[in-house]
Simulated scan of single mutants.
Amino acid sequence: MIKKILLGIALSIACIAGLGFWVVSLMLPDDSVDLRTTTAADLAYFDRRVAEHRGKILAVVTSTAVMGDSGKRTGYELTELSRAYYVFTANGFTVDIASPLGGEPPVVIDDEDMGAFDYAFLNDPVAIEKVSDTKPVDGVNPDEYAGVYFVGGKGAMWDFPENTAIQNIVRQLHRDKKVVAAVCHGPAALVNVKLDNGKYLLEGKRVSGFTNDEELFLISDARTIFPFLLEDGLRNRGAKVEPGPSYLEQISHDGDLLTGQNPWSVWALAEATIEQLGYEPIPRKKTGDEYSTQILGTFEQQGYRKARAQLEFFMGNADTPVNHSLIAMHAVVAGMKMDVIKTLQLLLLASGAR
């Protein structure tokens, strides 16, 4: 009997270990292609770039390097700048980069999220020169720009909301019916903007931004670290917040105001910005992350079977492999929330994307 019990325990441990190895293998990215040396010239997207100069867009990044008194490092999110930068430039716009303090801002680079466009940015001498010596926002002339784009990064929660120069830029562009766009924590720039009539810009506006659920899942004590949670700040100014599923694409479009929920919303937000500026975005080959987020969005809204069918279609027709590791990461999130069925279904989707 004891031998049978010990054998049963050993088999159970082996199964658990095997499941763990399987999950880890699904989370590992495909390293068959080294993207670190990618340049803008390597992006086929740029072969179709617009030759005419259509104007200028101002991208604003945070100057904050530490989250309050927590000691946690922060900065602007590279992927939220680099991807929008190339969408804007490929579609005929010059991008200037500014920050509250000017000079070289702190940056957050997550190796797991890096793609071809992000490495191209790091290897682009023009882009690096701009982001290494950003313009101070108090020296920006809004008249020079067709629109402004506020890049995310948790540091924006500290130095965007109370910055009067940022408020003036937003107010003037809005007054002139130009585009105001922001992603992830970038909408923190909008919470204290008042219009000439004394009302808050956000009052009655449909907006997206990093949600409380997303924030608190990653940083459980965010309420004590941050000046405020972004979703709360948006709602307190009368905004009609439109939260999508956590860590998936979600944008809101209200006239000349465009906002995105998180880093996975950058592509859609940048191209919606081009459309709002009056142009049809040039065709772009979608990334594996975008296909994955579409599948995950279908899963959240229509269930496993529809998501599986979409996965199989993409596997046979998409021009870029589906990113299985991103789906697996969502499975881990579901597991941490103790949703067993959702976890298993997402793991099956991730396995099918290998």
Rank of each mutant, 00 (worst) to 15 (best):
R223F: 01
E312I: 01
D256S: 11
D232C: 00
S265H: 03
P263G: 03
I274E: 01
I274H: 06
I225P: 05
A309N: 14
A239K: 05
R237F: 03
G297S: 13
D232P: 04
T287A: 08
T259P: 05
F228S: 12
P281E: 07
A272T: 10
Y279D: 05
G297M: 07
G244P: 02
E312T: 08
E300G: 03
S265V: 05
V266F: 10
L229A: 03
R237M: 14
F299Y: 15
E271Y: 03
R305G: 02
A222H: 06
T273A: 06
P245H: 04
G278S: 03
P263F: 04
E312N: 10
L229V: 09
Q261N: 10
F228G: 06
P245K: 12
A270G: 06
I251T: 15
T287Q: 09
E275W: 00
G238M: 02
E300P: 05
G255E: 10
E271H: 06
T273S: 05
R284S: 12
G244R: 07
K286D: 11
Y247V: 10
F228Q: 15
Q250R: 15
N262E: 01
G297A: 08
L257G: 10
T298G: 00
E271Q: 13
E280R: 10
T293F: 07
H253K: 14
A309Y: 05
D221L: 04
L230S: 02
L277S: 03
A268K: 14
Q310M: 14
P263V: 01
E312W: 06
R223E: 12
I282V: 13
R305Q: 15
E231V: 04
G260K: 01
L257K: 11
L234Y: 00
N262Y: 00
Q261D: 04
I251R: 06
Q250D: 03
W267A: 13
Q294W: 07
R284N: 11
I295V: 09
R235G: 08
Q250G: 06
G260I: 05
I295A: 09
T224S: 14
G303L: 08
L234P: 00
G238N: 01
W267K: 12
P281D: 08
G238E: 00
G303T: 08
G297R: 12
L248G: 01
G255P: 01
I274M: 02
A222Q: 00
Q302L: 08
N236H: 09
Q310E: 14
F226C: 09
E242P: 02
P245G: 10
L258D: 12
L229H: 02
V266T: 11
F228R: 14
D232A: 02
A268R: 15
Q276D: 13
G288R: 10
E271V: 13
E271W: 02
L248M: 06
L229C: 03
E312K: 14
G303W: 08
Q302S: 14
Y291A: 01
P227F: 04
E300D: 13
P227A: 07
R237W: 03
G255M: 07
L230F: 04
G255N: 14
I225R: 07
G278P: 08
T298K: 14
R237E: 15
E249N: 15
D254M: 05
A270M: 01
F226V: 04
L257R: 13
E249Q: 13
L296V: 01
P263H: 00
Q301T: 13
E300N: 11
A239F: 07
W264G: 11
P227E: 10
Y279Q: 09
Q294V: 07
W264H: 13
I295F: 00
A309V: 10
T224W: 07
G238V: 04
I295P: 09
D221Y: 06
K240F: 08
